[in-house]
Amino acid sequence: MPLSLMGQCSQDSDVCGAGPGSYTMPWATWDNNPIWANWDIYNREQNSEGRDKISYNQWYVEAFTDNEEYTTLNRAETPPRLMRCDSAIYFN
């Protein structure tokens, strides 16, 4: 049975986006796999403020076990986490 994890934005897609998509592996592989799952969470520039285009977005990880035989009816979600998005260039 596969387990898929995917980063998602709590806000609508016209405010925030996430990519590249889901990471899917068999359940048994997740505990012993050295590969990191990562997502890019980003805001839409038109929804940001100030010269550094600051916005605060919430994101979460969604978990599901869809395959050819089964479809997850209620996908699991972690509690949302707050993050700051900006275009500032003064960070190293």
Rank of each mutant, 00 (worst) to 15 (best):
W27Y: 14
T72D: 03
S22F: 04
I89T: 01
I89A: 05
I41N: 00
W59C: 04
L73W: 14
F91P: 00
P79S: 13
Q58F: 15
P34V: 11
M6T: 03
W39Q: 00
G19F: 10
I41L: 05
S13G: 08
T24V: 07
Y23E: 03
P20Q: 07
Q46N: 10
Q58D: 00
P20I: 04
D12H: 11
L3I: 08
L3D: 04
F91M: 09
A88D: 06
M83T: 11
V15C: 10
A76Q: 01
T78D: 05
S13V: 11
M1L: 13
P2A: 07
S48L: 05
G21S: 00
D12I: 09
T78L: 11
A37Y: 14
T71N: 14
G17K: 07
E69V: 12
T72A: 00
D31W: 14
A37M: 13
Y70I: 07
Q46R: 10
P79V: 12
E77Q: 15
G19I: 07
Q11P: 11
Q58H: 15
M6V: 06
M83Y: 13
L5H: 04
G21E: 05
R75Q: 08
D40G: 09
P26T: 14
R75C: 06
I41C: 01
C9G: 08
R44F: 13
Y23G: 02
L82Y: 07
T29R: 02
K53T: 02
A88C: 08
Y70R: 05
F64K: 02
W59M: 00
M83S: 13
W36I: 05
Q8P: 00
D86H: 10
D52G: 02
A88W: 08
W59H: 02
N67Q: 07
A28W: 09
R81I: 15
N92K: 09
D86L: 03
A76D: 01
A18W: 02
D66S: 06
G19E: 11
L3H: 06
Y90Q: 02
N67L: 07
I35N: 13
R51S: 10
D31H: 13
E69N: 15
I41D: 01
D40V: 14
P80S: 01
Y90C: 01
D66E: 08
S48N: 08
G21D: 04
N33F: 10
S55T: 07
M25Y: 12
F91V: 04
Q58W: 12
D12S: 11
W30G: 03
N43L: 10
S55M: 05
D12V: 09
A76G: 00
W39A: 02
N43R: 10
E77M: 15
M6Q: 00
G50K: 03
A18S: 15
N43C: 15
W30V: 04
C16H: 05
R84S: 05
Y90E: 04
G50F: 08
Y56C: 00
G21P: 00
W59A: 00
S48G: 09
D86K: 05
P34L: 06
K53L: 07
L73I: 12
S87W: 12
N74V: 11
M6W: 00
Y90I: 02
E68F: 13
T24R: 11
S10N: 12
P79R: 07
P26N: 15
C9F: 09
T78H: 12
